[in-house]
Design a binder for these strands. Structure first.
Lengths: 340, 340
DNA sequence: TTGTACGCGTTATCAG
DNA sequence: CTGATAACGCGTACAA
């Protein structure tokens, strides 16, 4: 492995000059530049990133924590993150949490031990250890939450997301406006507060319309196809089945539609279904899914920009940066059946 | 930022002892261990990963190159990779290529400049620069291809995948056995050799059955929902529309089904559709998709294991490691319509 | 069992 | 504009 020394020797200059040639070429005289360039080409020298990072004290790596690669919702978010990362010279290390718990200490440790310059928590299930609290006084580590609220303790953590409560209220209110009275809500995992805001929005809308909520209507779908299918089977067989189901994400909505149809019922004739996220499959399922669209790329971009600022030491403040959502009405929703 | 020195000072030992305590605790006397442990706790010391990597000459990072995070096909593959990575102490850096070209030099440079210990090319579009050829004599950089064949030059590169030709032949032959004679094939991008093997398998099966292939039947779907929809519109309106469509991946098959139904036709009554990959949505689309299943987790695991060996300097040989595929018959395929 | 001392490859500082 | 040299934090021979 050829080092800067050999290049310097071959070019007949000092290592300092070679280093300057690489990092501040304008500080090197034209004539010298050529000599160094030649030596680099001949040796095939490439600066050792390890040594460079060590010296500079920066990894230029940002860790993105997400539940699972393969979730179409992240496509747009990641695209936004990547665009900015590339522009700012960062690489992205992905850490999935699907089957592993994580705690906040792990993340601070990553920063502390220089494994990463900053961290983005993307819709992380966030089973943070209890008692985590970033007191506003202390300088925060460069960590940004994105897309979802997590534990109440971190409510004031820097984040970028839509107003989940308002969006869920809007979706539920839309169902109510169609005439639905028995509306179910399907959340993620009971252990996680991931979709809590969406549940809050749902309850808020129901309350405002003075509609009762049967306990059996609020069920867990684990944010997965399979979980939603199980939950729907129960709902359908219950004594007071709902005429509409609002799912906390599209994945569950797709599973729900499949299971409703498998049971011989129709969507939306018998049961209306609403999703959340507007992933690319929402438009091609049968029937196309009514859902809440999030401006994914924008979320990604703004998250990464904010993180860059935090890494640079700027004060980015606490709290959420809110981006607009939009209710997309497709054909999975209609008036409730007459008999009801 | 607290360094090893301060810990040593506080514990009243040398830095060497602290280092040993971290890396070879058994070489430190019990009594000393306690003192060091205490000092570490008090200072909140964490070894500087940058310095450590520099010193050891390894990053413990493996770069996984893939077209796009958010592609459900990668879920299983990544899970396998991650399991092994965790076990072997590696982190995963993800590099997406969706909208960026990459060349082989970029990857060798990553290894060369110590940005990563090894690289996995996952179903990469692989627009490698021409003239790339790893001659068998020279020691190869630790790079493994996974899932797909790429350019012909790299045919003999270390890889882990199913036998794409055989799988495609099997899928096509199945359609033929149902009585189909006019079978279309939808590939990815014409610029990419990504799905070339699958096309080869398709042509092989058609030839064996002595069935002609109309040029208009072989079309490009870009591996996306949207691309497939465009392609299907053309197919349906052509003078000799096919009675079955074999798509090079499930994503396109899902788009195809949607578009066929949107045109007022039925799947499989009017047109049968076969996909490839068996992503999780394949089972819940309407009708459920007949497709080729790949053992995703196994592919991921074996790829990562092989890469680890390569990183450790073992000779892993050239060529492909083949894993078994399986044709999954669901309800998107049936006999062709009588009229045909 | 522990301490001393050196070197890893780069960049930054400071003289020249 | 360029060269000499001191860090950066850690791991490890080697000596004690």
């Amino acid at each position: 492995m050829v080092s800067i020394k050999e290049v310097a020797q071959l070019a007949g200059v000092s290592t300092a000059t070679v280093s300057r040639f690489i990092n501040n070429p304008d500080q090197v005289k034209q004539h010298t530049r050529e000599r160094v360039q030649k030596a680099i080409s001949e040796t095939g020298y490439a600066p050792n990133t390890l040594a460079r990072n060590f010296r500079r004290g920066k990894t230029h790596i940002v860790v993105v924590v997400l539940p699972s690669v393969g979730d179409p919702f992240f496509e747009g978010i990641m695209e936004g993150i990547w665009r900015v990362a590339r522009e700012q010279g960062y690489s992205i290390l992905v850490r999935e949490t699907l089957f592993n718990t994580v705690d906040f200490d792990e993340f601070t440790h990553m920063i502390f031990s220089k494994q990463a310059d900053g961290i983005i928590l993307l819709a992380s299930p966030s089973p943070f250890r209890e008692g985590v609290s970033i007191d506003d006084e202390r300088k925060q580590p460069p960590i940004i939450l994105s897309c979802e609220n997590v534990t109440p303790e971190l409510k004031n953590f820097p984040s970028v997301r839509i107003d989940n409560v308002a969006a869920a209220t809007e979706a539920t209110t839309y169902l109510i406006s169609l005439g639905h009275k028995r509306i179910a809500f399907m959340f993620g995992k009971s252990s996680s507060t991931l979709t809590a805001d969406r549940e809050t929005g749902y309850r808020k809308a129901m309350k405002k319309a003075k509609l009762p909520i049967d306990d059996t209507w609020v069920s867990e779908g684990g944010l997965t196809l399979e979980g939603a299918r199980r939950a729907v089977r129960k709902l359908i067989n219950s004594s007071a089945p709902p005429t509409a189901i609002f799912c906390a994400n599209d994945e569950m909505a797709i599973g729900a539609i499949h299971e409703i149809k498998a049971a011989g019922l129709s969507v939306p004739e018998d049961i209306s279904v609403v999703g959340f996220d507007d992933i690319r499959y929402a438009e091609v399922v049968d029937p196309p899914l009514t859902t809440i669209a999030q401006p994914a790329e924008e979320i990604g971009e703004r998250t990464m920009y904010r993180l860059c600022k935090a890494i640079d030491g700027s004060d980015i403040g606490l709290g959420a940066e809110t981006v607009p959502h939009k209710l997309i009405v497709r054909r999975s929703t209609a008036k409730p059946p007459q008999s009801s």
